[in-house]
């Protein structure tokens, strides 16, 4: 089809399709004043806030990852393993989940496993949005001009790698199971079953990790979103509907689980280092 839009005056006697290719025409003068934005609200606030939040977490996580100590509290009859170090896979672990890495690994045992949750979050659709806006400034806010000359989005390396988010999700499910196990283990008080404030912290942590993992967009796609005709895939539709309830809150879960994983780790640190005493409920 040929759309004709009355911009140019072409004198033609017959309609001449060759005049109107399907190529999108570029250029033309834009209207409005030549300013970055006309917005008058504090459009930068959300971006600055999430930028600072993320930065604080990265700083904390780095400290924790290299701390290589006080990540397991077994001394006070507790069984609390910091989520940053779970599963603990090297021989130098205070608490060994399984010594998969053997003795050659000399650095902090947090490092090899953190690749997975870090990769999961770094490729997460929500965090992508957050860092593109807060750090990359593309865009700094909606309707505010970005400072870059060119822009290729996620079409080139390295950002095209964000497409592998789904693989990290597969691992994330494994991690969610492990962290659930850690929460169960937090009920172990020596040889008896009990519960301390730490146990509660672990349960909340596992719950938030699940909420974050299940509300993931890749999860939504894998469990049913890929289907075109739901009436022919009843079970997948059921799953999709459930995940679709969680999915709109993905950002919230992303933040809560992020903050809480830090809280959990810090709590373990405080207890393991003897700074505080973990109150026991029963």
């Amino acid at each position: 089809m040929i759309l004709r839009y009355g911009i140019k005056l072409v004198t033609v006697t017959k309609s001449n399709p060759e005049n109107v290719g399907t190529k999108v025409s570029l250029g033309g003068v834009r209207g409005g004043p030549d300013v970055k934005t006309l917005r008058k609200d504090i459009w930068w606030l959300p971006q600055v806030a999430s930028g600072i939040g993320l930065a604080l977490f990265v700083i904390y996580a780095t400290w924790t990852a290299f701390r290589n100590g006080n990540y397991y509290d077994g001394a006070h009859g507790r069984d609390y393993l910091s989520p940053f170090y779970s599963p603990c896979l090297a021989s130098n672990c205070t608490y060994k989940t399984a010594s998969v890495l053997g003795t050659w690994w000399k650095l902090s045992p947090a490092l090899p496993i953190l690749i997975f949750p870090a990769g999961f979050r770094a490729t997460c659709y929500y965090y992508r949005k957050a860092y593109y806006k807060s750090y990359w400034l593309s865009p700094p806010a909606c309707g505010v001009a970005e400072p870059h000359k060119t822009y290729s989005g996620e079409t080139k390396l390295p950002l095209i790698l964000n497409n592998i988010h789904r693989y990290f999700w597969y691992f994330a499910v494994v991690f969610a199971i492990i962290l659930t196990w850690d929460a169960v283990a937090a009920f172990r008080f020596g040889n008896s079953v009990g519960m301390g404030l730490g146990t509660l912290v672990f349960i909340v942590n596992a719950a938030l990790i699940w909420l974050y993992t299940l509300s993931c967009h890749a999860c939504r796609h894998l469990c049913g979103g890929h289907v075109d005709q739901f009436s022919k895939a009843k079970i997948r539709h059921w799953f999709w509907k459930k995940v679709s309830v969680l999915n709109p809150h993905h950002m919230l879960f992303a933040w809560l689980s992020l903050v809480w994983i830090g809280v959990t780790d810090f709590y373990v640190y405080l207890v393991a280092s003897g700074t505080i005493h973990d109150p026991r409920f029963f």
């Binding site: 089809m1 759309l3 839009y5 911009i7 399907t22 999108v24 025409s25 250029g27 033309g28 003068v29 834009r30 209207g31 409005g32 004043p33 006309l38």
Partner: peptide
């Protein structure tokens, strides 16, 4: 102000044919 992304025609009216071209494809 008129839409910024599209060329201006006059005042608040812009040439939105970009979108129609894309729809055509």
């Amino acid at each position: 102000t008129p839409l910024k992304t599209f060329p201006i025609i006059r005042d608040l009216v812009t040439d939105v044919s970009f979108n129609f071209e894309m729809l055509k494809k």
